[in-house]
Design a protein around this nucleic acid. Structure first.
Length: 269
DNA sequence: AATTCATCCAACCGCTCGCTA
DNA sequence: CTAGCGAGCGGTTGGATGAAT
């Protein structure tokens, strides 16, 4: 069957945007708002793919885009967030007002990744893949080519299925929905206990992110959607959480105490 | 001054997800 | 339940530019 292409691409312009195209796009969005990207080019009089329009707007034309160099503070935040979230550029960008996921991704790939590879501190295999066939690539030192495999602690989306009972910092359980249990090579921990201080939620929509720990796998389970069930706090479950918390601290490479860490987690909300 | 090489970043591509009919 | 669509995301590409030779 196959998925229909987002646009025919026939007769559409590609490559760098001209000032005139930018103006048309900005004028249209100012008049009609964002969205409906597929039909937008036609209505705005642009010979561009809707995807291209969306990207141009989000990464360049949006009025709240912050231009200029990444500040040391922003860089520090990017590094920390990347430790926590992995290559979730849009999530990281969400914590950096005015910065786009593309900008952060580029900044990481051009400035930070090299540094982390050099320090052997990357949490991802250094995929310094070839860029241009015709151009010489920087040769990696042997130590850089075989970095130890690390498990990226990707965050997990958590949705509350039952209301919080009393707003206290007591345990609620999170479990993977049936549809995804057993994925990740059967490594998923089916039920994970977490205190609310470890559940990084957004308060309103009752969704958030949680990194899960799996003893058998001895690593962090990546990217599973979780569903929150009723509060069932037990002391035994705290052991696993302590392990998770230790991992969390390692990731942050800080000596912060629990309160400070929770504060940092809240900053992510 | 000319050429080669390395770096940066805007833009593209392919995939996935959520929603709806 | 399935297919199709719109939208979003992350990986990758390639042109522009600056540095080195």
């Amino acid at each position: 069957m196959g998925r229909a292409p987002c646009c025919s691409k026939v007769g559409l312009r590609r490559g760098p945007w001209t000032p005139r195209e930018d103006k048309l796009l900005v004028n249209y969005i100012q008049a009609h708002g964002e969205g409906h990207w597929r039909s937008l080019p036609k209505k705005a009089g642009l010979l561009r793919c809707g995807k291209s329009c969306r990207l141009r707007w989000l990464n360049y034309l949006r009025p709240d885009i912050k231009r200029g160099n990444i500040t040391p503070d922003e860089e520090d935040l990017i590094i920390r967030l990347h430790s926590l979230l992995g290559n979730r550029w849009s999530l990281i960008a969400g914590r950096l007002p005015g910065r786009t996921d593309n900008e952060i991704k580029n900044y990481w790939n051009t400035h930070l990744r090299k540094r982390f590879v050099t320090q052997g501190n990357t949490r991802k295999k250094p995929s310094l893949q070839k860029r241009k066939k015709s151009k010489a690539k920087p040769t990696l030192k042997p130590a850089e080519e075989e970095l130890p495999k690390l498990h990226i602690p990707k965050p997990i989306r958590v949705t509350l299925s039952l209301p919080r009972n009393d707003g206290s910092d007591q345990c609620n359980t999170f479990s993977t929905p049936p549809s995804i249990q057993g994925e990740e090579g059967g490594l998923a921990t089916e039920v994970i206990q977490a205190t609310w201080s470890q559940y990084v939620n957004d308060g309103e929509s009752r969704t958030g992110f949680l990194s899960t720990y799996n003893n058998e796998y001895d690593g962090l389970v990546n990217g599973l959607d979780l569903e929150c069930h009723s509060p069932v706090p037990t002391s035994e479950d705290d052991n696993g959480l302590k392990k998770l918390y230790t991992e969390y601290l390692q990731l942050l490479k800080t000596n912060e105490d629990r309160v400070q860490l929770d504060s940092f987690a809240e900053l992510l909300i």
